[in-house]
């Protein structure tokens, strides 16, 4: 599903040039659950942004669904994103002005679903995430765990092939954290590919594979079945 070759990302400001990712080669198969770990500033979120087509690499190749996308325009990337990728963030990133229902409905609006299709699909997902009773509430009226469940609902409502989760448990207490991880695990079991950045070794273990990043490089890849340097 995902393949990168010598992926590089350099941030340039007026005074300094920072290499956030340096020659990263990674391959993720469909249906995998991959955890990415590493200290702050090692390039985890940058890698996730590139994989999620939120940004273009400075150099290198990126194949998404067998397609070279490294030099795609914003418009092409937007199209691929909305059709194939769901995102879950540490800070939930729900739109404050929209209700739970409206937040979850948003990806379907951009995909051009009809009103009745949207209603059915959103209700299904809210039921699945056990947040249906809060459908008319605004994000500020929910607890952190509930907000993350809404965020996950929004990520999966369009049935994406890939879910990218950037520290999805970072703002949650352990019980809510566990709840979110169980959700991701279930989704993965149902066939969705999951790539997750996390600081927690426990939650990283949910993955089939744990990739360790340091200073923009992959230093280790730890498979459930073995260890490889």
């Amino acid at each position: 599903m995902i393949k990168t070759l010598n992926l590089k990302k350099i941030y340039t400001t007026e005074e300094v040039e920072t290499t956030a990712l340096d020659n990263v080669n990674i391959k993720i198969e469909e249906g995998e659950f991959v955890s990415i770990m590493g200290p702050s500033g090692c390039g985890k979120s940058t890698l996730l942004n590139l994989l999620g087509l939120l940004d273009n690499p400075s150099s290198g190749e990126y194949y998404f669904l067998e397609q070279e996308v490294a030099n795609f325009s914003e418009r092409q990337r937007a199209k691929l994103r909305k059709e194939n990728i769901g995102f879950v963030f540490q800070s939930f990133n729900l739109i404050d002005e929209l209700t739970v229902f409206e937040n979850v409905e948003l990806p379907l609006l951009y995909l051009g679903y009809s009103s009745s299709e949207r209603k059915t699909r959103v209700n299904e997902v809210l039921e699945q995430m056990e947040i249906m009773h809060r459908r008319n509430h605004f994000p500020q009226q929910l607890s952190g765990g509930q907000q993350q469940r809404v965020a996950v609902s929004r990520a999966i409502v369009s049935k994406p092939k890939l879910i990218l989760a950037d520290e999805p448990t970072g703002n949650l207490d352990s019980s809510h954290g566990d709840e979110v991880m169980n959700l991701l695990e279930e989704l993965n079991k149902a066939g969705t590919t999951v790539v997750m950045v996390t600081h927690s070794p426990t939650y990283a273990e949910y993955g089939d594979r744990v990739i360790h990043l340091f200073d923009g490089h992959i230093v280790t890849e730890n498979y459930k079945g073995g260890f490889r340097v």
Binding site: G52, L54, E74, R75, A78, K79, R81, K82, E83, G86, F87, N93, L94, I95, D96, E97, L106, P107, Y110, L111, R154
Partner: peptide, 16 residues
């Protein structure tokens, strides 16, 4: 900014 970013993440292009 956050709202715009979220919209972009879930599929809005610049035109929309």
């Amino acid at each position: 900014a956050k709202e715009i970013a979220v919209r972009k993440v879930i599929g809005a292009d610049r035109k929309s």
